[in-house]
Design a protein around this nucleic acid. Structure first.
Lengths: 209, 209
DNA sequence: TAGATTGTTAATCGATTAACAATC
DNA sequence: TAGATTGTTAATCGATTAACAATC
C-alpha cells in the first residue's frame, strides 16, 4: 500500500518523518513493540492527528484499536525515506568540525556512511582521519564519480562553501548537507539542507532578556 | 519605533530574523551599504513581500525608494534578537563534537562565547580544551549559577541528554541548544532547539532514488 | 461486547503573496 | 519629475486540528 507517491506530498510532511523514525527506533531499543499516534504525539510534542495525517499521505500502517507495530512502521518509514539501504557520503573540509563528523558513529545505523574525505590544505592531504585518508580536493570530481556518491557534507568556511558546492554538483552529488553559515545556490533538483547553530541560538535569545 | 512587542509575534517569523541578520552582515563585509527586500529575497530565496512583512512586526526600518541601510538594519535586528550583547554559554560533553564546538570561532562576532565546559569522564576533567579547563559535571549547577549563565549547549549522547538538560534547568539555564539525537522535555518558558544532521540527511534522501 | 485507535473529512487556523497607495 | 521601494491590506494558499464512522 505504500509508495503511492502519485499526489505531491508537502515537503513539511516529509521533513517530520525522520523524527518519527528516530522515535520509533528509540521505542524499539527500549523494548516496546507497539505504539499509537497518541503516544508518539506525546513523546514528540506533536498532535496525534498530525501524525496520523502525515502517515496517511503514504498509506495505511496501523490498526484500529491497537495502533502501530513499531517494527513494521520503522520498515515502512525506512522504505519511504529510502534509508532501507546505506548511502555513501563525501565529506569536504577537515577542520575541527569535519574531524568531529568524520568520527561520528551515529550515521551508521541510520542509513549513511562516510566513504571519502577531502581538504585543500597540503599539510592535511595524505593524513588519516577516522580511518580515511584525506584526499586532495582537486580529485573530488574524479573520486566521487568513480564511487558513484550522491550525498555530501560541506564543512569548509563560509567563503569557500559555494565553490565546493559547485564542484560537488559537477561531480554528480544530489544532496548536500551544508555546515557553513551561508546560503548556497544549487540547480533545481539538487537537495540542500543547513546546519547553523548560530541561527538557532539567536532564535532563542529573542525570548531572553 | 522598535521593541513594540505588544502583539504576539509568530515564532516562525522570529526564526527567520537570524538569517536576515546573517545575510546583512555578509553584505556589509562585502562593502555594501544599502539593500532592499528584493535583493535580500533573491539572496535568501525568500519572497521580498515576506521579508517586508516579517520586519513590519517590529517597526519601520526602511525608506521608500531606497530600501534599507545595512548598518541600521543590522543594529535593529541585533536589538530585536538581543544579540547586541554577548551571551555567556556553558558546554556539556567533550567528545569529538564538543571539542569541535569548543574550538569554533564563529560564535564570537554573533553574540555568544563559551564560558565553561563540563564532562563526566574523570580522564577528561582537569584537561584543557580551547583554553578552558574541563570541569566535573557535579559542579555544573554551582558554576553556572555563580557565572549567571543562561545559554547552554548539550553534546553528550542521547541516553544522557535529558539528564543533563534537567541539571541545566535546575542551574537556571533558559535556552538549550541540543546536539543529542533525542527530544528533550523542558518546563515551559525554557527554550530548546535541536541540531540533528541525520534528520536532515533522511529528509533529503526521500527525494533520491 | 466495550474500549481504543485508526484513517479521513470538513472546519479552523495561520502563513504567504499580490497589489497598491504613500513617499523617498 | 520618473522610478523605485516601502509598509500594509486583503486575498489566497496551505497546514493543523477536531470530530467521527469504521473496525480491531
Amino acid at each position: 500500500m505504500q509508495n503511492m507517491q502519485n499526489k505531491q506530498i508537502p515537503d513539511i510532511v516529509v521533513g517530520r518523518l525522520p523524527s518519527y523514525l528516530q522515535m520509533l527506533k528509540r521505542l524499539k531499543t527500549a523494548g516496546e513493540t507497539n505504539t499509537s499516534s497518541k503516544e508518539l504525539g506525546l513523546k514528540l510534542e506533536i498532535s496525534a492527528a498530525q501524525i496520523r495525517k502525515d502517515l496517511s499521505h503514504f498509506g495505511e500502517f496501523g490498526k484500529q484499536g491497537t495502533g502501530y507495530s513499531i517494527n513494521y512502521l520503522i520498515e515502512c518509514l525506512e522504505d519511504i525515506l529510502h534509508v532501507n539501504k546505506v548511502w555513501d557520503m563525501a565529506l569536504v573540509g577537515v577542520g575541527f568540525l569535519g574531524h568531529a563528523i568524520a568520527n561520528f558513529q551515529g550515521f551508521n545505523h541510520h542509513g549513511f556512511q562516510i566513504k571519502c574525505i577531502f581538504d585543500v590544505d597540503p599539510s592535511k592531504i595524505g593524513q588519516f582521519v577516522a580511518g580515511h585518508i584525506i584526499l586532495d580536493i582537486s580529485e573530488l570530481e574524479k573520486v566521487i564519480r568513480k564511487l558513484n556518491i550522491q550525498v555530501a557534507m560541506i564543512t569548509v568556511d563560509a567563503d569557500n562553501a559555494q565553490d565546493v558546492a559547485d564542484k560537488l554538483v559537477r561531480a554528480g552529488i544530489k544532496s548536500i548537507l551544508n555546515y557553513a553559515p551561508v546560503i548556497i545556490k544549487v540547480p533545481s533538483g539538487i537537495q540542500i539542507q543547513y546546519i547553523n547553530p548560530i541561527i538557532k541560538l539567536q532564535h532563542m535569545t529573542y525570548y531572553l532578556k
